[in-house]
Every structure is written in structure tokens, then in C-alpha cells.
């Protein structure tokens, strides 16, 4: 393990061409249309820590997850995995086996026709990590035990398990290539709350035991608070705030971060009158000029409507907001 960050993301963007077919475009005299799912974001994740990305649907957080494991290539910008360009790292199977991903829906991410033992063993076979049926079987049993299942469960099919158990199988599969870096895209949002607690506890235990580095994607701030060292808040393809978990919750700086926290119904605050943020997330195809949050922002002024804010250091984190910079907040 090296001393530098496990992952560095440098000004990465991913644009999707969502234009109509050429002929239709010519007839309607329309130009090309680009969806800027991720529009220039930078962060790094030190080895052994967890960075979480939060935001509402369509903010680009899942696209980032796919970018950092190489399921998408960046439109521009650079992703460095352990100091090496991701494209190069992906070409080398020894490097590739060091990163794995856990998906949101444990009903869709496991092949229903495969036995659990084959699902978990697939990365071992693909990377040729072990030779011989016996060794592989023993390793699968070990992995299943590690995630709180029984080695005998290996002979069953995914439909015989509940949602939480399936997510445990996904985690066992992700761990089977001995990865150091795990990308978790909403790993608990399809689960009931009591089962969510089981999975979050398991992920924390595994991180401590195996020294894993996590990129954790979620829309649930309370979940994020429980697992993260640092948190990035995304809005319309951009990071608007990046800060250590505790300071983000103690002193949220960006108006959007504050709005998100204000929006969460909280058990402790029974009967509290909340002031929800107005409006909705605009379309990423035609985002508003200037700061993309300005139509919903209570602090917006003329500068916010024209000038795009950039990430600047604020306390122990970073914020992209003119109001914070000018201390109008």
C-alpha cells in the first residue's frame, strides 16, 4: 500500500450526447444537445478512508461512481488510481482486481441462474487468483462467513435470500478479489431500515479489518454521516461543498447543503415546522447560467446569476459559493 491517496479525481467531466437523430435535427433546425452529467469535479480519497458523495437524483453522483471504476471514460479530466492513470490501471488485471463496486439493487445485480458459490467465485476465476476447485470453494466459504452468511448458503440461488442477505452476497463477491478500493453506489437504499443498519455495520467492520478505502454514494445524509470521513455535496454535476463529515454537519456552509439538511424529516424534531427549499432541480441539459443553484437560493444576488462560482477553501473544507466567499451568509 502506498502513502498517497488511493484515488485522485482531477477536474473530471462526463458529457452525454442526447441529440435527436441527424435528420430530425435538420428538419427541426436544432443543434446538438449535451447533457453534462458530471461537469468538472475534483477530489481525492486518502487510503483507508471513506469519501461520500450526496445529492438528489440527477446530480451526477452515480456517474462519478462509474467514472472512477472505469465503466465510463471521462470526457475530459483525469482519474488516478494509486497514482496511475485509470485507463492504464484498468488494462492491468492485477491493478483492476484492486477495485470493486457494489450496486444499489441486490435484486438486479446477482444473476438469478447462478448459485451463490459461482457468483462469489466469479472474480476469483476471472482474475485467476486461485487454482483448483477445492481452494476456490474454501475461499468462497471464508468470504460468506466474513459477511455473516453460512458457507452452506453457497449452494443456494439468489431468490432464496432476502434483500439484506443478497446485499451481503454482493459484498462477498466484491471482496473476493481482495480489493483495496470499493465503490458503493447506494448500497442500502433498497433495504429496510433495520437491515440497512446490519449492512452499514458490516461495511464499517470490514473497512477496519481489511483497511478498505470507500467511495460511498448516497442520497441519505443520515446514512452518510455514519460512514464517512469526508463528504462531498453535489448539485447538477458539480461539487458545491467538500468537507470533513463532522464539520459539514456542524457548520454546513453552502446554501444547498443547508437546504438538504433542513429538508430531512427528523425523529427528534417531532412537530417542528420546517421551511422547505422551494423549486426543483433544473434540467442538466439546460442548466441556469452562473451558479446553477441560484434560482432556488435564498442568498442569490446579481453576481450569482452570471458568474460560475469555483471551489475555494473555507474553514477545513471547500465551498463553491459567492455568498460564502463574500460572507453574506
Amino acid at each position: 500500500m502506498s502513502a498517497g491517496p488511493m484515488l485522485e479525481v482531477q477536474n473530471v467531466a462526463r458529457h452525454f450526447d442526447v441529440s435527436k437523430p441527424v435528420l430530425q435535427r435538420l428538419i427541426a433546425r436544432e443543434g446538438r444537445r449535451t447533457l453534462r452529467a458530471v461537469d468538472g469535479i475534483s477530489f481525492d480519497i486518502p487510503t483507508g478512508t471513506t469519501l461520500s458523495l450526496v445529492g438528489e437524483s440527477g446530480c451526477g453522483k452515480s456517474t462519478v461512481a462509474r467514472l472512477v471504476v472505469g465503466l465510463y471514460g471521462p470526457s475530459f479530466g483525469k482519474v488516478l488510481f494509486d497514482g496511475q492513470d485509470l485507463a492504464k490501471a484498468r488494462a492491468d488485471s492485477a491493478q483492476r482486481s484492486r477495485m470493486q463496486m457494489i450496486f444499489q439493487d441486490p435484486y438486479a445485480s446477482l444473476n438469478p441462474r447462478w448459485r451463490v458459490v459461482d457468483i462469489v467465485a466469479e472474480p476469483i476465476r476471472a482474475f485467476r487468483l486461485l487454482k483448483g476447485k477445492k481452494a476456490i470453494l474454501a475461499r468462497v466459504g471464508e468470504l460468506l462467513t466474513q459477511v455473516g452468511l453460512s458457507p452452506l448458503d453457497g449452494q443456494k440461488y439468489p431468490h432464496e435470500f432476502s434483500g439484506g442477505q443478497r446485499q451481503r452476497i454482493s459484498i462477498a463477491r466484491a471482496l473476493s478479489s481482495n480489493p483495496e478500493f470499493l465503490v458503493c453506489d447506494e448500497p442500502t437504499s433498497a433495504l429496510d431500515v433495520s437491515v440497512q443498519a446490519q449492512i452499514l455495520n458490516l461495511m464499517k467492520e470490514l473497512q477496519q479489518r481489511l483497511g478498505l478505502t470507500y467511495l460511498f454514494i448516497s442520497h441519505n445524509l443520515a446514512v452518510v454521516r455514519q460512514v464517512s470521513d469526508r463528504i462531498g455535496v453535489m448539485y447538477l454535476g458539480k461539487l458545491v461543498e467538500l468537507a470533513p463529515a463532522e464539520s459539514l454537519f456542524e457548520r454546513p456552509r453552502h446554501p444547498y447543503t443547508r437546504a438538504l439538511m433542513e429538508a430531512i424529516p427528523d425523529l427528534e424534531m417531532t412537530g417542528r415546522q420546517r421551511i422547505p427549499v422551494g423549486g426543483e432541480v433544473p434540467s442538466p441539459i439546460s442548466p441556469p447560467p452562473g451558479c446553477t443553484f441560484h434560482p432556488r437560493c435564498p442568498l442569490a444576488n446579481d453576481r450569482c446569476r452570471v458568474e460560475v462560482p469555483v471551489m475555494k477553501a473555507a474553514l477545513d473544507g471547500m465551498v463553491a459559493c459567492h455568498a460564502v466567499e463574500e460572507e453574506r451568509d
Binding site: G164, S194, A197, R225, F249
Partner: peptide, 24 residues
């Protein structure tokens, strides 16, 4: 009690969330 306890709190970080073992 388990259901309430397993909700991750927003106002603080806990080392280990209360969980209900097993499934319905």
C-alpha cells in the same frame, strides 16, 4: 424499539448502529 434504534441519527455519529438481526 429496534426499528427506531436502527434509524441512523442525523445529529451525531455512532460507532455501531443498533440492528435487528435476521429478517422478517
Amino acid at each position: 424499539q429496534g426499528l427506531m434504534g436502527s434509524i441512523p441519527p442525523l445529529d451525531r455519529r455512532v460507532e455501531r448502529l443498533q440492528q435487528i438481526d435476521g429478517a422478517m
